[in-house]
């Protein structure tokens, strides 16, 4: 009898704990969840980048984006014709650009931009935030989590990020990117939370402006996301000229 009594008491205690207030998430947990919600594991998707000049003139690029694990990314330019066939590879901190006319892939840096405009290579071939940043402080602002992130190494494109995160959806609404000097480099606004493919609900639009490019905007639209696991060999320099065959 006492054994049964203990079991019943244990069950009641368990139910009470489960029904009680949810345990608050820590900063690193929020950041990891943000990563999972934005890019859930191995995948392919399309990204349209639109650079808008102050006079309204637009330039559009469409990229096919492949990602594997936390550190392997390939992008392939699908349009416009002047860029078609170009491909980039990121393996951790290493980045290369393959231009069909030039032949061999050349090393590029994260602060350069393969498309011009406000987005740089680190924005386009971004690794998970939790891979590159640690959470310095976790606060609240306007009903959202506010994470202050510090780069783990000097090789990361931005020294500090301020990230506003929706509490329920755990996706960012805004990220401010700062240089080591404290200068604001750009602000990324996350918009249009929707199903971007295979039930993945996340902001489909990243709208960026920068005090360094007064009046200019760059927009990145994500769509047609599919979970896809490719062999490691796809994420190699020799494969870059052939990556278009996998589309």
């Amino acid at each position: 009898m006492p054994k049964h009594l203990l079991l019943v008491l244990g069950l009641i205690l368990g139910l009470l704990l489960a029904a009680g207030p949810a345990r608050a998430l820590t900063g690193p947990q929020i950041l990891e969840q943000v990563d999972r919600n934005l890019e859930p594991g191995d995948l392919e998707m399309y990204r349209k980048i639109i650079n808008i000049e102050p006079d309204g003139k637009k330039m559009e690029y469409v990229l096919w984006f492949l990602r594997k694990d936390k550190d392997k990314i390939v992008t392939l330019f699908v349009s416009p014709a002047s860029e078609e066939g170009r491909a980039t590879l990121r393996l951790g901190d290493n980045m290369w650009l393959y231009i069909p006319n030039v032949g061999k892939p050349i090393r590029i840096t994260s602060m350069q931009s393969v498309v011009g405009g406000v987005f740089n290579n680190a924005d386009i071939m971004r690794l998970d935030y939790s891979v590159e940043y640690t959470v310095s402080t976790l606060g609240e602002d306007q009903g959202q989590y506010l994470l202050d992130l510090k780069a783990k190494t000097g090789a990361v494109a931005y020294d500090r990020l301020k990230m506003w995160v929706l509490k329920k959806e755990l996706v960012p609404t805004k990220i401010e990117c700062y240089a080591a000097t404290g200068m604001l480099i750009k602000t990324i606004h996350f918009k249009e939370i929707k199903d971007v493919g295979e039930g993945v609900v996340r902001p489909a639009v990243m709208d960026t402006d920068s005090p360094l490019y007064q009046g200019y905007r760059s927009i990145m639209i994500s769509a047609k996301l599919k979970k896809r696991r490719l062999p490691d060999e796809v994420f190699t320099l020799n494969y870059l000229p052939r990556v278009k065959d996998l589309r």
């Binding site: 918009k191 769509a223 589309r247």
Partner: peptide
Amino acid sequence: AGEYDLNIPEAQK
């Protein structure tokens, strides 16, 4: 959707 055109017709292989 809003001010953005979320179509990417170029994705057609």
